[in-house]
Design a binder for these strands. Structure first.
Lengths: 237, 237
DNA sequence: TGCAAGCATTCTGTATTCAGAATGCCGTCG
DNA sequence: CGACGGCATTCTGAATACAGAATGCTTGCA
């Protein structure tokens, strides 16, 4: 097991649902395909399948208790998401993020997040902002306890929650998909406790700006946060 | 055949390659999987498979000359891209974009494009800007000839070219993937010639701002352009 | 005549089989 | 001793086979 052991990516496949759409109950009849998608993503993010690994289809199929056919279909899907690369004639390889990849992805993340932030400052209700603050407080509690895993999860949750305040489901979906792709590497980059401190301070600034509905301040805080993320993460690539 | 007959989406699967990375020759041994991806996307965008259609795997497999296995794998990939929806127990259905979907997607497109625009104004060389202008001029020529299909293709190409000036491959990839998803509906919304006129004027403003490396003006022009796109497109949903 | 139940058909989802490419090992030759 | 060639093995890619769910039609009954 690696440093990420125990990390549980809650690969919420369901696209975020707007509050104003009831859509009755969400009957999530788990298909094998969906199940496999989650399992594969989890195994990659938890480094059970580390970057560069060539997937042996028969072997992995046995491990997961399915035949190669549905497994291959799931692999193709995850490849389309970007976590896996398909090499013609050689099957599937776990994507190895380069420094450049990460930098570029963080830039896109920033673009999405700042766009969301502006909308959020316009649209968010007091109650919604209170919810974000509550998430932030939970995160701070885990930070105080030095509980890295829970801290990290809540950290991501705060970001996702802010983006969701924009009220744009598609944006949230894109954002969270990208967050997922960076999840493993960002978690690794968070190993040193001194790195948390800076991140926590940046989060305080973000939540404060959101509470004040100060879009420009929020954008500045988010941008700064992501630039620092790059600094924190770059060595662990 | 529908209004989009003959539209040829050049679904360039290759992620945009930076000029500063030689990477030798790109040996594009076309795999069956890749081929099927393109064919499926094309059929959807050209409305050969109109929105709402349930895909009959055996039937489509026969039409394309492949068995169900590789076809299903391709369907899963395209579903992951968002052009197809998977309905448990009922197979695959061509995604029907709602008004809300389109609005949300255009917002994300704007976020990506404006972020790219700022970087482009910083990074682009004179030669690169000249290339964009050349594309724009070709577009104007087709506009003058009232050649809707070519005009439309070049229109999209200009946008993609501007985004590429940001020098962020990942951003370009995301942008072009999203452009692809909106391609069909935007083409339909472009039917009326009077709609072209406005779009052309907006393009002039864009190219002028880029040439002046005036990031804020470019962002304004792009934003305005996408808002107008929404107006032009909204009825055809 | 309308509705419902049951049956036949079709289609999806998954497993299995088959062909051919890639890989690695071993033996032989320079 | 090193390198090249051939062979065996393994794996991917694709087709086929099979099981079970969904669908639609028909028939019988109220």
């Amino acid at each position: 097991m690696t440093a990420t052991a125990g990390m549980q990516p809650e690969g919420s496949d369901q696209p975020p649902v707007a509050a104003d759409e009831p859509a009755f109950v969400k009957i999530s009849r788990h298909t094998l395909h969906g199940e496999l998608l989650e399992r594969l993503r989890d195994m990659i993010i938890e480094s059970v399948l580390p970057p560069g690994t060539r997937i042996n289809e028969s072997q992995l199929g046995v491990r997961l208790g399915v035949s190669r056919t549905p497994l291959r279909e799931a692999i193709k899907s995850v490849a389309s998401e970007g976590l896996i690369e398909l090499v013609p004639g050689r099957g599937a390889v776990i994507k190895q993020l380069t420094e450049r990849d990460v930098r570029e992805m963080l830039e896109v993340l920033a673009a999405l997040e700042t766009a969301a932030a502006r909308a959020a400052c316009r649209r968010a209700t007091d109650a919604e902002i209170a919810d974000v603050r509550a998430l932030h407080d939970s995160m701070m509690a885990e930070y105080a306890r030095r509980n890295r895993l829970e801290y990290y999860k809540l950290n991501q949750a705060v970001h996702a929650a802010i983006v969701r305040l924009a009220g744009n489901n598609f944006l949230s979906g894109q954002y969270e998909a990208l967050q997922l792709r960076l999840k493993r590497i960002r978690f690794l980059g968070n190993a040193a406790p001194e790195k948390w401190r800076g991140a926590v301070a940046e989060h305080e600034a973000m939540v404060a700006a959101l509470a004040a509905r100060d879009a420009e301040a929020l954008v500045r805080a988010l941008t700064e946060h992501l630039e620092q993320t790059w600094v924190r993460v770059r060595d662990s690539i």
